[in-house]
Computed example of a mutant assay.
Amino acid sequence: MAETTVNVRYMVDDVEAAIEWYTGHLGFSLLSNQAPAFADVKRGSLRLLLSGPTSSAGRSMPDGEKPQPGGWNRIHLIVDDLPAEVARLRAAGAKFRNDIVTGPGGSQILLVDPSGNFVELFQPARH
């Protein structure tokens, strides 16, 4: 079966800053850059669309509300060694919303991108 690409759109305040953050911290590769409006980056089968305020996705809705970054929805990236990944990212100046939380399925932490969008780093429990 062929690999399927999953597309997720994040509203961002600054497309160039988002490109630098996702490629520099999380290993995404740049597919296209149409800053300041839009860019897309890819990691594995995930294509992340980074839409700035001047993109078509940033246009006001009929009721006048403008799409904004942030919220609790997030992409979920699996890592092999969560404490080591957190230490690496903290040393690089990355910001986190919380500390590592462990449950029956594994451990997770919420990383915050420059626009306030969340990225969940998750290490599955070893069974």
Rank of each mutant, 00 (worst) to 15 (best):
residue 1 M to L: 10
residue 1 M to W: 02
residue 2 A to W: 00
residue 3 E to D: 08
residue 4 T to W: 01
residue 4 T to D: 05
residue 4 T to K: 11
residue 7 N to I: 12
residue 7 N to S: 10
residue 7 N to Q: 12
residue 8 V to W: 04
residue 8 V to G: 11
residue 9 R to S: 15
residue 11 M to A: 14
residue 12 V to S: 05
residue 12 V to D: 02
residue 13 D to M: 05
residue 13 D to C: 08
residue 13 D to W: 00
residue 15 V to D: 09
residue 15 V to I: 09
residue 16 E to V: 14
residue 16 E to D: 15
residue 16 E to Y: 00
residue 18 A to W: 01
residue 18 A to L: 08
residue 18 A to C: 11
residue 18 A to N: 07
residue 21 W to A: 07
residue 22 Y to V: 04
residue 22 Y to K: 07
residue 22 Y to S: 06
residue 23 T to N: 07
residue 24 G to D: 04
residue 24 G to M: 07
residue 25 H to I: 01
residue 28 F to S: 01
residue 28 F to G: 00
residue 29 S to H: 10
residue 30 L to I: 06
residue 31 L to P: 00
residue 32 S to I: 04
residue 35 A to I: 08
residue 35 A to F: 09
residue 35 A to N: 09
residue 35 A to M: 09
residue 36 P to A: 13
residue 37 A to V: 06
residue 37 A to S: 15
residue 39 A to I: 02
residue 39 A to T: 03
residue 40 D to M: 11
residue 40 D to E: 14
residue 40 D to H: 06
residue 41 V to T: 02
residue 42 K to L: 01
residue 44 G to N: 11
residue 44 G to I: 02
residue 45 S to R: 05
residue 46 L to F: 03
residue 49 L to M: 15
residue 49 L to R: 08
residue 50 L to K: 09
residue 50 L to Y: 03
residue 50 L to R: 09
residue 51 S to R: 06
residue 52 G to H: 03
residue 53 P to G: 14
residue 53 P to H: 09
residue 54 T to I: 10
residue 54 T to P: 04
residue 56 S to H: 12
residue 56 S to K: 08
residue 58 G to C: 13
residue 59 R to Q: 15
residue 60 S to R: 14
residue 61 M to C: 09
residue 62 P to E: 12
residue 63 D to I: 08
residue 63 D to E: 12
residue 64 G to C: 12
residue 65 E to L: 13
residue 66 K to F: 10
residue 66 K to M: 13
residue 70 G to M: 10
residue 71 G to E: 03
residue 71 G to C: 11
residue 72 W to E: 10
residue 73 N to L: 14
residue 73 N to C: 13
residue 75 I to N: 03
residue 75 I to Y: 04
residue 76 H to T: 09
residue 76 H to Y: 15
residue 77 L to P: 06
residue 79 V to H: 01
residue 80 D to I: 02
residue 80 D to E: 15
residue 81 D to T: 10
residue 85 E to S: 06
residue 86 V to E: 04
residue 87 A to Q: 14
residue 89 L to K: 05
residue 90 R to S: 13
residue 91 A to M: 04
residue 91 A to N: 10
residue 92 A to W: 02
residue 93 G to R: 05
residue 93 G to Y: 05
residue 93 G to C: 05
residue 94 A to Q: 03
residue 95 K to M: 11
residue 97 R to H: 13
residue 97 R to I: 01
residue 97 R to F: 11
residue 100 I to K: 00
residue 101 V to R: 03
residue 102 T to Y: 02
residue 102 T to I: 08
residue 103 G to S: 10
residue 104 P to S: 13
residue 105 G to P: 00
residue 105 G to Y: 10
residue 107 S to A: 15
residue 107 S to N: 04
residue 108 Q to T: 13
residue 113 D to F: 06
residue 113 D to Y: 05
residue 114 P to L: 07
residue 115 S to Y: 04
residue 116 G to D: 07
residue 117 N to V: 12
residue 122 F to D: 01
residue 122 F to C: 03
residue 123 Q to M: 12
residue 124 P to V: 06
residue 125 A to M: 12
residue 126 R to F: 05
residue 127 H to K: 11
residue 127 H to C: 03
residue 127 H to D: 10
